[in-house]
Design a protein around this nucleic acid. Sequence first.
DNA 1: TCAAAATTTTACCAATTGGTAAACTCACGA
DNA 2: TCGTGAGTTTACCAATTGGTAAAATTTTGA
Lengths: 207, 207
Amino acid sequence: MTDATDKKPSRIQMRNRRLILDAALDVFSRDGYGGSTLDAIANGAGLSKPNLLYYFDGKKEIYVTLLSQLLETWLDPLIELDPDGDPVEELLSYVRHKLDMALEMPAESKLFAGEMLQGAPRMADHLNNELKPLFDRKCQIIQDWIDAGRLAPVDPPHLIFSIWSSTQHYADFGAQVSALLDAKDPAKGAHAHLEQMFRRLLQPAST
Amino acid sequence: MTDATDKKPSRIQMRNRRLILDAALDVFSRDGYGGSTLDAIANGAGLSKPNLLYYFDGKKEIYVTLLSQLLETWLDPLIELDPDGDPVEELLSYVRHKLDMALEMPAESKLFAGEMLQGAPRMADHLNNELKPLFDRKCQIIQDWIDAGRLAPVDPPHLIFSIWSSTQHYADFGAQVSALLDAKDPAKGAHAHLEQMFRRLLQPAST
DNA sequence: TCAAAATTTTACCAATTGGTAAACTCACGA
DNA sequence: TCGTGAGTTTACCAATTGGTAAAATTTTGA
């Protein structure tokens, strides 16, 4: 039983697995899966390559572990969308939360984006089995709000796409944003703009 | 004078350089720069690897050539934004054009996105010297429209970011879009949704 | 037609990369 | 304190990769 995936991870196991995953996030998000090397990850984690392979069975396992752990936190805010709250405020709160995540966790956003760019080959299962049902559930909530006249009529799936894309843009295309924006900090303007855009889109015609 | 960058490219040069760039677009956009191999590109182009290297000096040169050629067509629609046209219709036309490009040229979009994800290391010059001035010029046009009361007050740079992100999303995150959308063809819904969203955002309060 | 130039192939190579074997060291409980 | 298993290092390897040298072939223009 020298396998690193045992039931009872030691303190050292916990520490080193975390070191490795942290370094791997840096490397994978910067260089992409194909452009990343075990040496770079091991170096970033302060471990030797064979030592790194003592904790993970290979490059792919590190990547997949990272990705599946990330997905949980990444989709969390969508879960919180509350059917009993005020529709516009619920959705705007979601936009705010998503933008904050993009601004504060750009590496995570980029890792996710990179996987999507390549056709999500290692996430197809998760996409179909986990995200799709959640997505459909939340689309239904939005549709119910619309049917109740509490939200302007929008296409729920495409609304969610717009929220995802416009927020994650500040992480994934951060290089472009920085190069084009004179302001030192894009956060302020981004928040104000997205709030305005989605409020106008979602506000039902006042009666 | 056996250099492939001569002034007068032969018919064979034209044909093979195109074959190589076409194959390279496929490979680079699918596997990322680091994950792509000269063998894969040569194979896709139907040439041997040394033959491929007869036309380009190396992997990086293929990539950079591809990227810089792409940028011209990619930014073209922004150039067309006409200060003398109707503001809302000009911008909506730009949105439509951008979405069509994303839907029809997903590989190009992904190549561009992949470069951005990695911090645009091979595009910093182009970003600062070409795109930035164009971007500023177009932001000024939008600002002028707003000052003239012909457009709702929006933050021009962030408006452009929103247009870019929400349209390119259908290419870059195509795997996710396909997995989550029940409709066979996302194009129809996407067009309608983006038209609605940006029209609401941009329409000035009617007097 | 025919030599020169352009193009393509064959045969390589050095460096890198993901990964392994096995020896070695260290921490800890009996 | 000492044996045992967890953790680490050293030394290595086969496959892949970007790239080259030079011979062989095809195309071109006079």
